[in-house]
Design a binder for these strands. Structure first.
Lengths: 256, 256
DNA sequence: AAGTGGTCTAGACCACGAG
DNA sequence: TCGTGGTCTAGACCACTTC
């Protein structure tokens, strides 16, 4: 607490600076640093608004505005009366667990998918993987193929590309033993939290192998979902391609 | 201005009310009423924050919070130094014009699609249309079929269902003559502004007729996009089904 | 210079959760 | 009862746009 009030002077003072950003954004990036550095881990509470205000030497309202933005970006979760928490893919909330999965059963009940790993191997990044993941050509990558089942029926085939240097020690056993979502595992085991993702959707025809896995005829139209996921600092750390069988499910998207 | 300060007493005073909502939300719904009633039309400026604060008998900060939320919902657009404007599908901004179209060309240049009306007829609402559009069975509906071309190539077939009682007088000529987006036309000609939409995506096979229109082989996988669009008060006013050819385009979705 | 939205502050009080 | 986030206020000053 020696620094109380002192940090204020380290913040940008001048409005005429060419790289000017408002105080609450500077506070925001300070809190972000705390998240990236692991000072506050997913699921934990960060200090109260008043405490952060004292620490950073600004008013409580300024801290509040910084936290408001981060809550809107799903980085933090506010709980009235309790505190502000670091968002996690391991929350009790089921919606948080499969936040990035937009596949909905045609008729009614939304049950959690069950993951069945098919293959797991290591390789070297080719042109496309190195470009998309922002790693060197030939850098180690880990590839996972898996099947997702809804109500015991196979519906999704995923092929997941991960930069090997980020997820060292990931193994097939970890995937098989893990309960919960894939991103929850990456978060708790490797400290890498997925913040946002970008998906490219296309309609494609099932080839022989994938058709067999999904128990449909070769050539059946499938929804191809290519996803790149990003962690703090917009750093890409996952590239995957999903093939969705949309006979009894649909992909839901809300347009604002 | 006779009512200055008086309206304040019409707002909810008690926090113990079972239907309690904070003051800024009440202000928000008052502004919303102004939008719905057409007091402020799309593209126009609403009164300044200070003026609204006086009119509603609350502080400027409370009005500000109400407007903040509405700007986040794309209902209003703030312009520093100028004022706050009602959002419109006819904005100069190209992004606003095709806000709901997520189809991106595979390679580079994003040019505006060109719409070519194919068919236009009136019918009576069946089971599905009446359920989705929230109108009576047998109520009049208007159906439009059209082709969307990117760079002179046919890429999208749309079939659009509109409640006839909302869009009386809509004609094929209006569609042919109109420059700009379809929603821009509905907004300027019928005063109905689309706020949000919900899309259900599936992969399907092209039938003979649609394959011919898109100049592809019968059975080619297409992206089926069913959309329900809502205006103020979450009232559904459009149901459409699009068939997207995703050979040289993809559907982009951002996951937060 | 005037008017608009944008930022920042300080303080009051309310609602919620936990002990 | 206490500490947390949530709401509301009043006032100061800054930045941008227009005149």
């Amino acid at each position: 607490m020696i620094f109380c009030g002192a940090i204020r002077f380290m913040l940008q003072e001048s409005h005429s600076s060419p790289t000017f950003s408002p105080l609450y954004r500077q506070i925001k990036s300070l809190i972000l640093q705390g998240l990236e550095s692991g000072e506050w881990r997913p699921g934990e509470a960060i200090p109260s608004e008043t405490e952060l205000a004292v620490r950073f030497g600004v008013s409580q309202g300024t801290v509040r505005k910084a936290i408001d933005e981060m809550a809107a970006e799903n980085l933090l979760i506010r709980r009235q009366g309790k505190g502000t928490y670091v968002a996690s893919h391991n929350d009790a909330d089921q919606r948080a667990k499969f936040r990035f999965l937009r596949l909905i059963p045609e008729s009614g009940t939304l049950d959690s998918p069950q993951s069945q790993p098919l293959e797991f191997w290591r390789a070297k990044a080719g042109q496309e993987a190195s470009r998309i993941l922002g790693i060197k050509l030939g850098a180690p990558i880990t590839i996972i193929r898996r099947l997702l089942k809804f109500a015991a029926k196979p519906v999704v085939i995923d092929e997941i590309y991960l930069p090997g240097e980020v997820f060292v020690g990931l193994s097939l056993e970890m995937l098989q033993e893990h309960r919960g979502s894939f991103y929850g595992l990456l978060e708790s085991q490797f400290g890498v939290r997925m913040i946002r993702a970008e998906e490219h959707l296309r309609a494609v025809a099932a080839d022989r192998a994938n058709a067999a896995l999904l128990a449909v005829a070769e050539g059946t139209p499938l929804l191809s979902v290519e996803r790149v996921s990003y962690t703090y600092g917009d750093r890409p750390v996952e590239w995957r391609r999903g093939l969705y069988l949309t006979a009894e499910h649909y992909y839901l998207n809300e347009l604002g």
